[in-house]
Design a protein around this nucleic acid. Structure first.
Lengths: 249, 249
DNA sequence: ATATGCGTTTGATCTCGATCAAGGAAGACC
DNA sequence: GGTCTTCCTTGATCGAGATCAAACGCATAT
């Protein structure tokens, strides 16, 4: 049923963390839900803390409850590239795989809701629709990774920054289900260094481009790392992508 | 069983195309095999021909029998980035998804072995192990895409070219199951333009870097687009990645 | 043989983003 | 208060790769 439909799970913030399961499958059956409920554990990491190293055996899977983590990969000489950004509701871990291919690092203070991988896999074995949902989520990640390849390979510094802001604005809108009227705001959790690592730039270039966007009135930086975008369509214009009339989602 | 093991299907070149199915699952049951055998069709495309456009509905899935295709994505102003390279035995198409996210273009003359997507999906519904295998393949692609993000974001032109040659040498060795003794050779099917699109460079830079590698004796260009690598470890040294003792696979 | 076309190579120059360097803002701690 | 530290900003300079331009090699066609 509903095969082919992309149903990114709706984020429902909740102290009791139903997210963790909803992130896996929004069409779940009650018994699966209860089973997962039983085996869940929470853990919080400090900013900068490494959650898991590439190659390491990771015996847990789970999802982000709150905060931001990054998947990154490092060359022997220290050059680093972030290959994925994990925001609240994102799935963490590699079902059916022994080790990780990339480092997982907390970008901010972050809370994960984790559960034992082998128990989770046993459940996947019993419920084919979970595997189906995992395949869909992986295809989404693959699409996102490929979009990012376009950014890394062909976009200018200015376009890269604008694209990042567009993506973060969209993720935030999705998370809070708000439809902004004139202008929109979102929190910029991550540091300049994390942005640089993500965009394939240096922190100086990131800083200069943000200053430039600010000088031109395309963005405003407020308190508590909030970014305000007076005209979203104008920001999209700067991102190099098709405008699509400046639609948020 | 054998969950967690990565079993990239072994390529068995064959006029009757068992590849197509082996590419999906090397642990298949005979009845699935026969069903797929019944519904397969072949098609050949000319170099440069577009197999499918991004956003288009693609009612077929299949695999590459012979030749090279590329997945690519284009900015409104024409800048292009290749986001995937499809070599023999690679899977083509998006099971469970309506449309494509990227253009599929033949880089060389290419033969695909295709079958009807909805029939394939019906089969997937009946055999959970096929879906399991699809998830594994998608995770492999995701890893490859993320490796490529590191290349696009952080490697120099020289390192990009060397990395590409290393990858193509490995893919070729895997395909022919040969263990090269001193030096190895592989065919360079794709044009300078395709390389540039893949690496996020211009054709001039690609050409210059290849000339430089040749001048330094790291590669030799022979007839029929063959590339000979006298010392594979030295080439890996230039790729920026960890050496791993110059191991081929 | 000459022409046409495409992919490739090479040279000259320019430019965007990296690098090097200094200073500023905001918080934590004594 | 002062002094860390960490993150951010801005300036000056440099250089890798882009851009512009010309020519070459090697097909196939005329």
């Amino acid at each position: 049923m509903a095969a082919g439909a992309t149903h990114r799970p709706v984020q429902t913030r909740c102290a009791d963390c139903p997210i963790r399961y909803r992130a896996v499958c929004s069409h779940c059956e009650a018994k699966d839900f209860e089973e997962l409920e039983r085996i869940k554990t929470y853990r919080t990491y400090a900013p900068g803390e490494t959650i898991a190293w590439a190659g390491e055996h990771m015996p847990l899977v789970g999802s982000v409850v709150d905060g931001v983590a990054m998947l990154s990969s490092t060359l022997p000489d220290g050059r680093r590239q972030m290959v994925g950004l994990l925001l609240p509701s994102d799935f963490v871990g590699r079902p059916g795989r022994a080790g990780l291919s990339f480092d997982v690092v907390a970008a901010t203070e972050i809370t994960l809701c984790m559960f034992n991988k082998s128990e989770f896999e046993r459940m996947v074995g019993r419920s084919p629709h979970i595997e189906h949902r995992l395949l869909e989520m992986t295809l989404d990640e693959l699409d996102a990774a490929r979009e990012w390849m376009l950014l890394l390979g062909r976009k200018t510094a200015r376009e890269k920054i604008a694209s990042l802001f567009v993506i973060m604005a969209r993720r935030d809108a999705e998370l809070h289900r708000h439809v902004p009227r004139d202008g929109l705001s979102f929190p910029l959790h991550i540091t300049r260094e994390a942005m640089a690592d993500y965009l394939g730039l240096t922190i100086e270039t990131v800083s200069r481009q943000i200053s430039a966007l600010r000088r031109q009135g395309l963005i405003e930086l407020g308190d508590n790392r909030m970014v305000h975008v007076p005209d979203f369509a104008k920001l999209i214009d700067q991102s190099g992508d098709d405008a699509d009339g400046g639609v948020l989602v």
